[in-house]
Design a protein around this nucleic acid. Structure first.
Lengths: 240, 240
DNA sequence: ACAGTATTTATCCAACGGGTTAATTCTTGC
DNA sequence: GCAAGAATTAACCCGTTGGATAAATACTGT
């Protein structure tokens, strides 16, 4: 039970206070860490180091590891929902609206790969944390209603031959984008070609747009028609 | 450097040898553990316990944690490739072949949820292990060629209006199935409805088939047309 | 100035977890 | 039968890691 003697301070370096900045840096570092290693693989020490902080600060500002994780996850959802809201498809022709929606989803996932990893991590945990989050549950995706009206308009205008459940359509569009990007590493190995080159990405976007639009409108897009050589390039080694 | 004195054995319980069985039990237990918790979250002790084995046995029969993980992953790929081979689409009408392919993929993923989790885990690691595997690389999926011939036949027969890169089509079909099931936990929370009920699953399969076939053939399937009420059921709580 | 609080640092620790050592028992070829 | 090797068990080693404690320093209002 020997009491530890008072710690001697050697350096009296000045440090600045910046609680908000610190919190932000912690959350950013945690996002990187959790998306790179998952929940169990993430290391508190690495997050602290990356944030230019001390481990103790995480607990001070956010709480324990799981709290930190949930906060990061909530932030990720907030971000995408925010961007989703800015995308208004109301003024566009229904087919253009769908195309724009696909492009947005695709580019968002491309720009925010951590989001994909975080979702996968959370699904591995069977949404255990998300279920506890009151925040996320209230953040309904504005997409579903937007899509519903787009589909309705499209059917009325004759652009679309069919009606679809907007939720199914939303999931399908997300699926086409998500799976390709989230699984690009294993797919690249399996197919022996780099799926993340500029050309491959452009090709994929074109494919997705024509797939969905062809199904909805009944007209095959020129892009979809492209016969495409097998294009068996060298296996992927960079994952830019 | 004090030598440990010889350990005294108290119980002289008889035990049976069963190397092959033991190895299988270990791999099965490991598959469960890795798919349930990911690579970092998996616990060697739990795997041993689940296999009715001793921790030391894992190292004796398979190697260290990463070796074990890779072995499990390779086994998972072998299994799906094996079932894929049995599925011959050659005799079917092109549209039926595509429908059958979608149904197979969907049902395989439904029956083998661990496979989805393993793939996600491996993609989190950017396919680090898969790249090292000589086994998997040699298991080039015959699927791509199968799909290519189906598409070619479809175009020649006039069933399909368009040509598609078989890799893109394969990825799209896998994507539609994979994403829905792999992310059902978070999606169920977001949309406030259980996506894994029998009805929801049937609805999803119908949606995917009509989406892809409508795009390929230009004819909208009856199923796709179903206007579908919003059907906002109670939030999901069981994840059967 | 200065008391009181908010923020940050240095240090510690108990539990955990992968991996290892060494002893023991079963099996098989001769 | 019995020696050699294969399979299995128990014990334990040791770095890691999440989390905790206490002290120190910056900031704020008065």
């Amino acid at each position: 039970m020997a009491k530890r003697p008072p710690v001697k301070r050697k350096r009296t370096l000045k440090w600045q206070r910046d609680p908000e900045g610190m919190r932000l840096r912690i959350l950013e570092a945690a996002k990187q860490e959790f998306s790179a290693h998952g929940l169990a693989g993430a290391r508190i020490d690495r997050i602290a180091a990356k944030a230019g902080a001390n481990k103790r600060m995480l607990y001070y500002h956010v709480g324990n590891k799981e709290d930190l994780y949930l906060t990061v996850l909530e932030g990720a959802y907030e971000k995408i929902r925010g961007e989703e809201r800015q995308l208004d498809l109301e003024h566009l022709d229904p087919p253009e609206a769908i195309e724009r929606l696909i492009e947005f989803t695709w580019n968002y996932f491309l720009r925010n790969p951590e989001f994909l990893a975080l979702l996968n991590t959370e699904n591995l945990a069977r949404a255990k944390h998300l279920k506890r989050s009151t925040k996320v549950k209230s953040m309904h995706s504005p997409f579903v209603e937007m899509i519903r009206t787009v589909v309705t308009r499209g059917v009325e205008s004759g652009d679309f031959r069919v009606t679809v459940d907007p939720v199914q359509l939303y999931i399908s569009i997300a699926a086409l984008c998500f799976f390709y990007l989230s699984n690009s590493a294993t797919l690249s190995v399996i197919f022996g070609r780099d799926l993340l080159t500029k050309e491959a990405r452009d090709e994929r976007l074109a494919h997705m747009v024509s797939l969905v639009l062809a199904a909805l409108t009944g007209k095959s897009t020129a892009l979809f028609d492209k016969p495409k050589a097998p294009s068996l390039r060298a296996p992927a080694h960079h994952t830019a």
